[in-house]
């Protein structure tokens, strides 16, 4: 079967800033593929190259077997794209913008319009409003409909969840899962690991413009990552924290800091044995997780 996305040593170099180097990806039809890396790692550059917004310096890429450079329009025919920030032409109503967007695709206009109204209903968006008057979250909804109304076989989502409230995020994820059930391939880029964990089958990790690892999400699942800050009632023995799941450990008097990566229950058991005056658990930045990840691997 032709992969939905295939890149071969795809490289994009720009002047001074870092681009991407030798990106090799193969995403099969029907996969939800996570693309994860810290900000500036090259996720957007890869996506923008796939969409023909950037011309690759070397290497090649295909969408459903169609070359992104030589057959750009054909390659993009079956793609829906949702950027992290959505912008539209001034002074237009939502419905006019969506109709303009629909006019670029070969699919029957009627089918697209039916889907447009379905999606608008699901996302609770009034199509007759002016785009300029919409809140950020509602503009994002316009973006979602715009990317999905022509029922593309491939959805490319570049950090799509920013600006969506948790409830809407849930609706959006459900929508993506539903699309995926109908065979839609999804490339989902994010710098938030938990998002990718929730949704994706496989994930590629990108760092400094290179893919450092492609793995099934199962190996990441069952792993919870926390940045733990503890304040102890009394100094504790360091040996309590000698655990394979703990990294980046530091002590300042009564304060203890570490990154936990592993089963959350094991963490609660460990904490249960301590006399705490305060605790804070946060999802660490991706960089911190990676730091931990590479130390362990390496």
């Amino acid at each position: 079967m032709t992969p939905a996305i295939e890149t071969k040593q795809l490289t994009k170099k720009y002047g001074k800033s870092r681009g991407i180097i030798d990106i090799d990806l193969q995403i099969q039809e029907g996969e939800i593929f996570g693309f994860i890396g810290p900000n500036g790692a090259g996720k957007s550059t890869t996506i923008r190259t796939l969409l023909g917004l950037l011309k690759p310096t070397s290497g090649s890429a295909t969408l459903f077997g169609k070359d992104i450079v030589n057959e750009g329009p054909a390659a993009r025919e079956d793609v829906g794209y949702l950027p992290s920030e959505v912008f539209y032409y001034d002074n237009m109503r939502v419905i006019d913008l969506l109709k303009y967007s629909a006019s670029f695709y070969k699919k029957p206009k009627r089918d697209i319009e039916i889907r447009m109204h379905e999606l608008a209903k699901l996302l609770d968006l009034d199509l007759t409003r002016k785009i300029d008057d919409l809140s950020y979250g509602n503009k994002k909804k316009v973006g979602i409909i715009q990317g999905m109304q022509h029922s593309p076989r491939l959805l490319i989502l570049d950090e799509p969840t920013g600006g969506l409230d948790p409830l809407m995020q849930q609706t959006f994820f459900d929508l993506l899962r539903q699309e995926n059930k109908h065979g839609v391939t999804i490339l989902f880029s994010s710098h938030i690991l938990s998002e990718v964990q929730k949704l994706c089958d496989r994930v590629a990790i990108i760092k400094d413009g290179r893919i450092v690892e492609t793995q099934s999400i199962k190996s990441l699942r069952g792993h919870n990552y926390f940045r733990c800050e503890l304040e102890l009632a009394a100094p504790a023995k360091k040996s309590i924290f000698a655990n394979k799941n703990i990294s980046d450990f530091s002590v300042h008097g009564h304060n203890i800091h570490f990154i936990w990566s592993g089963d959350v229950n094991e963490l609660t058991r460990l904490l249960a044995g301590l006399q705490l005056t305060d605790i804070s658990l946060e999802e660490p930045e991706l960089e911190e997780i990676f730091l931990h990840y590479y130390k362990k691997e390496g």
Partner: peptide, 18 residues
Amino acid sequence: SREVRSKTTDFLLSKPIR
């Protein structure tokens, strides 16, 4: 330059059009 000013370059150029 319309797309540059309204930041709609992504919108237009990611469509299946040359």
